Computed example of a mutant assay.
Amino acid sequence: MRRIVILAEAAFTLHRAKTATGVIRYSKDKVVAVIDSTHAGKNVAQALNVALGEDIPMVRDINEALQYEPDALMIGIAPVGGALPPSWRWQLTTAIEHGLDIISGLHTFISDDEELRTAAEQKGVMIWDVRRPQGQPRVAKFAPHRSGSHTVLMVGSDCSAGKMTVALELERVAAQRDLNGSFLATGQTGIMISNNGLPIDHLISDFVAGMVEEQVLQLAEEHDWVFVEGQGALNHPGYSPVTLGLIHGSAPDAMIFCHLAGAKTIDGYENCPLPSLQRLIHINEDAIDWVRQDGKCKVVGLALMTVGMNDEEAQAAIKAAEEETGLPTTDVIRFGAEKLMDALQQHFSAH
């Protein structure tokens, strides 16, 4: 297990630092501190105003973080464009000088930075650029999965709609039920948590479906349930291509739809309104049926993010979504993923 300090200077919020919060919630590694001088003196729970990381201190900088004896520094944000903020360089340099490995999910690779790479080589520390693709590029062959295996893909209405969280919570419930399940990470945060996976937003578009297919086929040979982390959204004006490649590459047997309760437009695209949930569900089912053509892959449950609501408001939002879609609905963070796993097991027992 690593002892990680997370760097999220002036950016430690639920939305901007979802890499950090995902690792704090799910990683087997121990997060010993989070760097954000605007929250120094608090703990993670106080900084985020959520019940998470009550035992993890917020610190001013890497020098203060060193007292907690970390062995790795993780960059805890994924900014648009994916570049390292220039004001953060000294913190990475200091971390390397003290023998800390560097873990980065940025699109700009830290190991391609001559100064930082040379410093790491001199200190004998590792730089792990999580988004650097591994494996050989391949085009999808539309190969069938092992009979008896179930591949479940998380899709959604937007980025940051909880797709990774839902996949991890389903894997957790499957394990509790003694089901042989596995999580396939497809983004930098999921890879940091599972120490494996495929950074599909950094692959050449022709190879996205094929490399996802290869991973799913391997997992389906070993596991009865494969929970695939979704990315982007088919209706997203910026990230729809990666979503379509993931849908066709994973060739799911069922899908769970993820949505931020109350959202009206794509985040950051105020001129791009969201269609109805029914319409969004239909376009995802239709997209897989372009290649499957059997109509068997359905969205069988809805996962709502109800952040910012109290429990009564969350329950009302869940009830409204169930009435609108006719699908079992829950918030997996507030109420667990058991309802969704029940829906999946019932779906497959009927087919």
Rank of each mutant, 00 (worst) to 15 (best):
G99D: 09
S160I: 06
R132Q: 03
G156M: 06
G135R: 05
A175W: 09
L168H: 05
M126T: 15
I102A: 04
A161T: 12
L116W: 03
A119N: 04
T151N: 03
A161H: 01
S104L: 09
I127R: 10
V130A: 12
A119S: 10
T189Y: 05
D158G: 06
M192N: 08
Q122V: 15
M126C: 09
R132E: 00
W128I: 10
D112Q: 15
D101H: 14
L168K: 12
F183Q: 01
K163I: 11
S149N: 05
W128N: 12
G156E: 04
V173K: 13
G105L: 11
H150R: 15
M164P: 01
E171N: 14
E115R: 11
T165H: 01
G181Q: 01
E114D: 13
D129S: 03
F109L: 15
S111T: 09
S111F: 05
Q134V: 14
T165F: 00
E114M: 14
V152Q: 00
F142Q: 13
F183A: 00
C159Y: 04
E115F: 13
Q136R: 15
L116T: 02
D101Y: 03
D158A: 08
T151W: 01
V130F: 08
R146H: 09
K163T: 11
Q122Y: 07
Q122N: 13
D178Q: 15
I193S: 06
G181P: 02
A167M: 01
E115N: 14
T108I: 06
L100D: 04
I110L: 11
A167F: 00
